[in-house]
Nucleic acid binder design. Structure first.
Lengths: 231, 231
DNA sequence: CGCGAACTGTAAGCGCGATCACCGATCCAC
DNA sequence: GTGGATCGGTGATCGCGCTTACAGTTCGCG
């Protein structure tokens, strides 16, 4: 029992939106958010199976993506542990065009819509942090939108690699950061085709900026890659 | 004095984020948000002159946009009366890459950062609505991002015209809606060049879907235009 | 260990839309 | 009403990146 409670609080304490809460408060919320696991490749939700719940990612990675009429995919977000996500119809709108897929084996906490309102939105300390998260997401999407309009594919790929590397291992961005992504996933993140992604990555690798291996990209020369992204 | 107070409340009552408040509460907030006017073409803020304030648009239109290194512009949002906007560093992040420009002569209420925290973020009734607004903005940006990746320029232009027409005159979307936009502004909204925007609009006009005149686009056949947008 | 699936690499072709270079039309200010 | 500025229209050129079509490679799994 105490083990279980401890685990739940571990779940909560890692999540920055609960940073202002006391241990007792976290326990109350944790009790309303049971854990659930998914295997790599599983869909957590889709336009056809929408969910009325909020997820808190504990372990693994999740990607949020959309599908074009002709079947191409665009990844709009990569969720990392400690982050909340969900269909967001809890925030008033239905963004049912989104799929959520587990990239790795994944552990999440699940909170029902009613509890989201009771525990999260009614508490100013938490709702202000939700606003912060949404604000960050707005800023990121604005950047990606202008990048897709303004920049070339090589620039976008370089920029995306820098961004992901930077948030993977906080701070300066050293050499040798490994990103566990296939060319296909990079293509879906940058809004290009798998073939061009392969070509561009190959050119960067030839120049010694990257090392490529199956399903992994290692950044060898962060500075040049950053410069390559253009601003 | 009473006139002035009445005007201020008029300002507030039109804004949906204050819908839950009493008249007295609105007055308190209104007192902290003096009015300010700008002429068409004026910049309300820019990356070089950032502001630490929140704007509430009372009258006119404002566009939020970004500039590419080589001078092209991309409009990321068109603000209409009753909507809040701002540099959003009040929400924890700096999205200083944005310009805000008055499209028409504009009247806004301006609220300082400290008052934003005191009056808005600390009140659950308001902060939940701010979350809603940000959530809607996230959904809109996700749609625009996937549209730029998936759709052709003609489809994006058709979609943008439908969207703007729909939110201009709420509900069904009748025929004969007029949009006060130049080809250049439409190009900046859809992430294309002015020349191609002109060509595409001309083709739609030839087919009898639109009527064009200087600085205005009139939608003649909403159904076909909507279909043209693809989904 | 051998098969199939997923991932990676390569190359030719071509179409969309950016870019460049204009000119006419409309509007506004003086 | 005249000059300047903004807006609208049009064509030629050209290159990026999508598409199509394979072939080789690494991995997981039975």
């Amino acid at each position: 029992m105490e083990r279980a409670t401890g685990d739940d609080i571990w779940c909560m304490a890692e999540v920055d939106i609960f940073a202002d809460l006391s241990a007792a408060e976290m326990e109350t919320i944790a009790a309303a958010a049971p854990m659930k696991t998914y295997s790599a490749g599983d869909l957590l939700y889709s336009p056809h199976q929408p969910v009325e719940t909020l997820f808190i990612l504990k372990k693994g990675r999740v990607r949020i993506f959309r599908i074009s009429p002709d079947g191409r995919a665009l990844t709009t977000a990569l969720i990392t542990p400690g982050t909340i996500f969900g269909d967001m119809l809890l925030l008033g709108q239905q963004m049912h065009d989104n799929f959520a897929e587990a990239l790795d084996d994944v552990v999440v906490c699940v909170m029902a819509r009613a509890d989201v309102h009771r525990f999260l939105l009614s508490d100013p300390r938490i709702s202000i942090r939700i606003s912060e998260i949404l604000g960050r997401r707005v800023a990121e999407l604005e950047r990606r939108l202008s990048d897709t309009v303004f920049k070339s594919v090589p620039q976008r790929i370089a920029g995306t690699l820098c961004l992901l590397a930077g948030e993977q291992q906080k701070r300066p961005l050293g050499r040798g950061v490994q990103l566990a992504l296939t060319h296909e996933q990079i293509a879906a993140l940058t809004g290009t085709s798998r073939e061009t992604a392969t070509k561009v990555l190959g050119e960067y690798a030839d120049r010694g900026l990257l090392k490529l291996s199956r399903g992994k990209v290692t950044i060898l020369d962060p500075d040049t890659i950053t410069a390559e992204a253009g601003q």
